[in-house]
Structures are given as structure tokens and as C-alpha cells.
């Protein structure tokens, strides 16, 4: 535990002294802002009609009410989160290779597994905080816009759905970290993220979404319609297994690969 604390202190210092957390915060904050704007547009059908394209896009969100708005927030975290959280993960792991600072991590009294665990923890914490921020900002915007239809039961179920969706998205990050290590930098990991988004879309569109880990968070969020008929119990295990496999191979890579960077 002491070694983990040492590694976590180092990782936290690196992360929170960089501009990347602020960039990700800014990036994801656009989601609830855009959602709020769509709600304002939808509340006034005449204005929506005048706005043409934007009005049409706003209609895709649904109605100007809390259920539609919560659904939109869940989709933001499932789709936008997949990109932004993956960006964070590829930075946390990939920068050590891009900046060649990994040399300073490999032969220290802090075991490599503690360093990898600390990196995963920072990514998870970072992503969780971002999710909480998006939800809080979204909720605030919903209140400002004065959306109708908020009940206690809806608030509870929407909160659960949002954070479970964020949790599923976060579970997919070890695979991104592994690719950042294998590719020794950010680029391969970012490329992998876009590839998985593409694969996720194709799988969902062709009816295989329940079997594809990169479709499951988006399907859960309701991006592809009601999730009930599309997901089954094993879908969540697929995400968990993908996560464990990514983490296992990342730990193994740090402990076994030749480090020539």
C-alpha cells in the first residue's frame, strides 16, 4: 500500500500540474451546454423551425423535458466520454514514452505494478470526477432552462443510468492504456479509440452490439433506442472481461517487455 501511495502521489502531481485535465473538462462541458441549448430550442417550436438544421438536430434529442435531457446526458458520457476518457488514458500512459520519461519509472523502489495501478487509479478518478461534473453541470442547466417532468423516481433512475454508463465507459480504458504502451506513445491509442468507436457503431447497427464491448455503453445510454431488447446480462460481463484483459496485459507488458525507449 505504501508503494501504491508513493506512485499515486507522483502520478497525481504529474496529472494535475498539466493542462490536459482542464482541456478534458472543457471538452466534456460542451455536452451539457449543447444539451441545454437544444432544450431551449425545443421549448419553442417556432424558433426550432426557424433554426433549420439546428432545430432538426435538436429534435433528435427528443422533447424538451427531463427524461429526454437525462438521456442526452447519458449519451454524452457514453460517446463523448469514450473519446475524452480515452484521451486521458492515452496521455497518462503514452506521455511516458513520448517524453521518454518511462526510464525514470522502471528502476525505482516503487514496483512497476504499483506505478501501473496508480496510473489506472488516476485515470479512473479523473474520469469519475469529469462524469460527476458533467452530471452536475447538466442538472444545473436543466434547472436553469426550467424543464418539465422531474420526479424523484426519474432523478434516481437517471442518476443510476448516467453513472453506470460512465462506469462501463471507464471499464474500457485499460485496453486504450495497453495500446498506448504497445505503441509507445499517444497516437496508436488515439487511433485505437476511433477504431473502437467505429467498430462499436457498426456492431450496434448490424445487431451485434450486445456482444461488442465498445457498443455496450452507447446502447446502455439509449443512443440506439431502448436498451432492454438490445442488451442482455452477459453484455456487462463482456465489458468487465475486456477491462480485466486490458489491465492484465498492461501490467504484464510493464513487467515483461524490453524497455528500450
Amino acid at each position: 500500500m505504501k508503494a501504491f501511495k508513493q506512485a499515486f502521489s507522483a502520478e497525481a502531481l504529474k496529472t494535475f500540474r498539466s493542462k490536459v485535465p482542464a482541456l478534458t473538462l472543457l471538452g466534456l462541458s460542451l455536452g451539457p451546454l449543447v444539451g441545454g441549448f437544444f432544450m431551449v430550442v425545443l421549448k419553442d417550436p417556432e424558433k426550432a423551425r426557424k433554426m433549420g438544421m439546428i432545430g432538426a438536430k435538436a429534435h433528435l434529442v427528443g422533447n424538451a423535458d427531463w427524461p429526454s435531457y437525462f438521456g442526452f446526458l447519458a449519451q454524452i458520457i457514453a460517446m463523448g466520454g469514450m473519446i475524452v476518457f480515452a484521451f486521458a488514458a492515452s496521455w497518462v500512459f503514452g506521455r511516458e514514452f513520448a517524453d521518454r520519461t518511462v526510464r525514470g519509472l522502471l528502476a525505482t523502489p516503487t514496483p512497476r505494478s504499483s506505478i501501473v495501478a496508480a496510473k489506472f487509479s488516476v485515470i479512473a478518478l479523473w474520469s469519475a470526477l469529469l462524469s460527476a461534473w458533467v452530471f452536475a453541470l447538466g442538472f444545473l442547466i436543466g434547472k436553469i432552462v426550467v424543464l418539465p417532468g422531474l420526479t424523484r423516481q426519474l432523478a434516481l433512475s437517471a442518476t443510476f443510468d448516467f453513472f453506470f454508463c460512465a462506469f462501463l465507459t471507464i471499464l474500457l480504458l485499460p485496453a486504450v492504456a495497453l495500446v498506448a504502451c504497445l505503441g509507445r506513445g499517444y497516437l496508436a491509442a488515439l487511433g485505437f479509440t476511433f477504431l473502437t468507436l467505429f467498430i462499436g457503431q457498426i456492431a450496434a447497427a448490424t445487431g451485434w452490439g450486445a456482444w461488442c464491448p465498445w457498443s455496450i455503453p452507447a446502447i446502455f445510454s439509449g443512443a440506439a433506442g431502448p436498451r432492454g431488447p438490445m442488451l442482455f446480462y452477459f453484455s456487462y460481463w463482456i465489458v468487465a472481461i475486456t477491462s480485466l484483459a486490458g489491465a492484465f496485459f498492461t501490467f504484464a507488458w510493464w513487467n515483461r517487455a524490453d524497455h528500450t525507449t
Binding site: 505504501k2 507522483a10 502531481l13 525505482t108 523502489p109 516503487t110 506505478i115
Partner: peptide, 11 residues
């Protein structure tokens, strides 16, 4: 700060 990173990792 770079030395602080090494400081943490060295315990």
C-alpha cells in the same frame, strides 16, 4: 517538481 516525482518514487 521533477525532483519531487523522484522523491515520491524513492519513498
Amino acid at each position: 517538481e521533477n525532483l519531487a516525482i523522484a522523491f515520491h518514487l524513492q519513498g
